[in-house]
């Protein structure tokens, strides 16, 4: 369509303002010198300094980053396998159930998933003595379980887009299935794995509800800490912390976004070449 309704694109602009305005306001006020968050009294970075002197906050951040890195790695391994099964194996025993299990965590209210995971850990502890109490291990397992779905969706989409004839050609030439997977499939879906890892990482880093259910003493994560502070109202330290988190996440997304964009361009170019040649 060559007609561009101005109203429509104005609305789009307003929509983006709605999405970004609140985040920008937090970033803006994180540099406010005043303790009263919304009363501007001058530029200052003192809240960042205060943040770095808060040892409990730093400890919680380290715990969160550790859990997020382990969860994302586990989620990429299991999510890739799950996505591969769904994209490449049209039928196997209980496939419908499997597809349901992969997609359910995406929409399941977190209070339910959290409660269910906790009750499993408690039951297991009673039966086999593991896990011994709750902490970083149980949080990591719970996070892997619900983030692997996101990875599986990304990997499945990528595998469906991919030219399957390359895999078949390698197979015809005598490569073993795992060789095909390692030498052909894996390198081709690597950008999807990277963005899947980053997505799992940020979701794990951000999770409050499920974590609260399956955490134990000594495993307070950053969102748990933020939540307990935020409940009491707005505070300049939280503004500073929020700004740091937004900065880190944005960087991560931009990297993975550029990876996907480059991959799409390559795909288009090879499609053009194929069409031209």
């Amino acid at each position: 369509m060559n007609r561009r309704p101005v109203a429509l694109f104005t609305f789009l602009g307003l929509g983006y303002a709605f999405l970004y305005g609140p985040i920008l306001s937090v970033i803006f006020y994180s540099f406010n010198e005043n303790r009263l968050v919304t009363v501007w009294s001058g530029f200052s970075t003192k809240w960042y300094g205060e943040l770095f002197r808060n040892e409990r906050m730093i400890e919680a951040a380290i715990t969160s980053l550790k859990i997020a890195a382990m969860s994302a790695t586990g989620a990429v391994v299991l999510g890739t396998l799950a996505g591969y099964c769904l994209a490449r194996m049209p039928s196997f025993w209980g496939r419908t159930l499997f597809a349901g299990l992969v997609s359910a965590p995406l929409v399941m209210p977190e209070v339910i998933t959290g409660l269910a995971s906790l009750l499993l850990f408690v039951g297991l502890e009673q039966m086999i003595g593991w896990p011994d109490g709750r902490g970083v291990d149980t949080i990591t397992i719970a996070h892997i379980t619900f983030t692997l779905s996101f990875v599986a969706v990304i990997v499945q989409a990528r595998l469906k887009d991919m030219d399957q004839s390359i895999e078949e050609a390698a197979m015809d030439l005598g490569a073993r299935p795992w060789q095909v997977f390692y030498l052909i499939t894996l390198p081709l879906i690597l950008p999807a794995l990277v963005s899947g890892w980053l997505l799992a990482f940020t979701i794990s880093l951000d999770d409050l509800v499920i974590t609260s259910f399956v955490s134990g003493p000594g495993s307070t994560t950053l969102p748990m800490m933020i939540f307990s502070k935020v409940r009491l109202g707005v505070s300049p330290e939280i503004n500073a912390l929020a700004t740091l988190i937004v900065g880190i996440v944005t960087t991560g997304i931009l990297i993975s976004g550029m990876l996907l964009l480059r991959q799409n361009r390559e795909k288009e170019r090879s499609a053009r070449e194929a069409a031209g040649g």
Partner: peptide, 17 residues
């Protein structure tokens, strides 16, 4: 997608302010 990846908690917190 970008705000969707940014901390849920912080986006709610922003509205408190």
């Amino acid at each position: 997608i970008l705000p969707f990846w940014t901390s849920f908690l912080i986006r709610i917190y922003a509205w408190m302010g």
